[in-house]
């Protein structure tokens, strides 16, 4: 047996991954799009902070915010953002039963119950928010 020892670190077997490895397969693409939803979560926060600031500054500033939000580019951006945020919400609620193990009297609460509770909470909070804002 002759081993070739070198004073250098050996080269590991490391297959090169193309940067856009997730484009080719649908499930990979959906995974990366789901991860990208966080960008639109952050955008939503920025947009709502602009709203809060405008509302605190008075009627004229609020009107400027309304004009900005009805700009076609802004409207298009927010429609895309809305799609991503809803995608985030659905994937999040569908994963919740896997992350939460709730036991009642020693029995595991079924997954469907946990998921439904999340969807019910979502509907309730959305209705309450809409009522507070528009009512």
């Amino acid at each position: 047996m002759s081993a070739n020892y070198t004073e250098f670190h050996p080269r590991w077997y490391r297959p090169r991954m193309p940067v856009f490895w997730w484009v080719g397969r649908r499930s990979y693409l959906v995974f990366v799009l789901r991860e990208l939803s966080s960008v639109f979560v952050a955008w939503s926060v920025v947009f709502l902070l602009l709203l809060v600031h405008a509302v605190s500054q008075g009627g004229a500033a609020y009107q400027r915010f309304l004009n900005l939000s009805s700009n076609p580019w802004m409207l298009a951006l927010n429609v895309v953002a809305l799609a991503f945020v809803v995608f985030h919400a659905i994937t999040w609620f569908n994963l919740a039963p896997q992350a939460m193990v709730v036991r009642l009297r020693g029995k595991r609460v079924p997954r469907s119950v946990i998921a439904s509770a999340h969807y019910a909470g979502w509907a309730l909070l959305s209705a309450l928010t809409a009522w507070l804002i528009l009512g």
Binding site: V41, S44, F47, L48, L51, L66, S69, S70, M74, L75, N78, V79, A81, L82, V85, V86, H88, A89, W92, F93, G121, W122, L125, S126, T129, A130, I133, L134
Partner: peptide, 18 residues
Amino acid sequence: AALLLPVLLLLFGLVIPA
């Protein structure tokens, strides 16, 4: 974010400006 952002963005990003 999942509970509250969709409704807020729906209202202020789409329903009201449209």
